[in-house]
């Protein structure tokens, strides 16, 4: 039971922060299928940072990890500006642009990782190794039965994610900036008439989504593989998109969906262990979140209300 909660949380929270990134972008009216590429590129930047600076710190130091998360956020948003450029300035189809950016991310990171490893570090590999992230038990609270598992062997990034998510929630729903951003997704002409700059606000939304996805990608790199390699492109970005669609483009319901995905996944692994099935069954467990998404989408898509101007190029002359 404990391991379901521990593993579930460490999977759901990165998924959640990526989904928040998606909510920002889509609330601003830009369809963002590029989350997958953004998280991968962010993780690449973070992994590269670790590979470059690790030697300057004593082994076991946690500073490279935090720096990696910072550069992952920066890298993610720089890469996201490409999506902004294509969707906002170049009037490309936003769905196509997103997919293109994902494909580019995969080939670009694979190429760069190989090239950098070969020419700077003299290795033939497409990986950047990361140190194993420490895990913390919170004293006292972690001793509570069942609920204590939420506070046992927690990755440090989970705290960061919770804080960032709270800030993101506050900004989106409680500040004028957030209101304008959401208005850009529902009625950009109104924003324009009220004196707001639609393109700038949308750029802000896309860059934010890049930063949050980069952070999430770095967390996945630490928790799932403890390295950066092109296998980070496992479809988690797409999974978080379905989480946010199922969460009806709102942050709190999306948290629920992400937790559901996480617990379905970790629960499946535990089930296989307790039944003593061979490890090949893990493939079937891995499908659980996807199957669940598909079924849930079938039942709830009718009631979904995406932002009204989602996916449309903003054209001043159009009414």
């Amino acid at each position: 039971m404990n391991s379901i909660i521990i593993d579930g949380m460490s999977f759901s929270l990165p998924l959640f922060i990526i989904a928040i990134g998606g909510i920002y972008s889509e609330s601003g009216g830009i369809t963002n299928l590029a989350l997958e590429g953004l998280l991968g590129f962010g993780a690449f930047c973070g992994g590269l940072t670790v590979a470059l600076i690790e030697q300057f710190f004593p082994s076991g130091s946690a500073i490279p990890m935090y720096l990696a998360m910072l550069t992952a956020m920066i890298g993610g948003s720089v890469y996201a500006s490409l999506h902004g450029l294509l969707c906002i300035n170049f009037r490309a189809n936003q769905v196509i642009s997103g997919v293109v950016i994902n494909i580019l991310a995969l080939s670009l990171t694979a190429f760069l990782a190989n090239q950098i490893n070969a020419s700077w570090f003299g290795k033939t590999s497409n990986k950047f190794m990361l140190a194993v992230s420490p895990r913390v038990d919170i004293p006292v609270i972690s001793k509570i039965p069942v609920l204590g598992a939420f506070f046992t062997s927690v990755y440090p990034y989970e705290f960061i994610i919770v804080v960032v998510a709270l800030v993101a929630w506050y900004i989106l729903y409680k500040t004028p900036t957030g209101l304008r951003l959401r208005a850009c997704g529902d009625n950009p002409h109104a924003v324009d008439a009220a004196g707001g700059n639609v393109a700038a606000i949308r750029y802000g939304a896309v860059l934010t989504s890049g930063a949050l996805s980069g952070l999430g990608g770095m967390c996945f790199a630490y928790s799932i593989s403890t390295n950066f390699s092109p296998s980070i492109f496992m479809g988690f970005g797409y999974l978080s998109i379905s989480a946010l669609i199922f969460g009806n483009w709102k942050i709190l319901p999306t948290l629920g969906t992400c937790l559901l995905f996480g617990f379905a996944r970790s629960g499946g692994y535990v089930l296989i262990n307790t039944l003593g099935l061979p490890s090949s069954f893990s493939d079937l467990v891995l499908t659980l979140p996807y199957v669940l998404t598909l079924i849930l989408l079938i039942f709830f898509s009718k009631a979904n209300q995406p932002p009204r101007a989602l996916g449309e190029v903003y054209d001043k002359g159009k009414r």
């Binding site: 299928l33 598909l294 989408l297």
Partner: peptide, 13 residues
């Protein structure tokens, strides 16, 4: 259902 999401889910399944 959004065909993009459902096709991606089917890909992985």
């Amino acid at each position: 259902t959004n065909e993009v999401v459902s096709s991606i889910m089917l890909n992985y399944i």
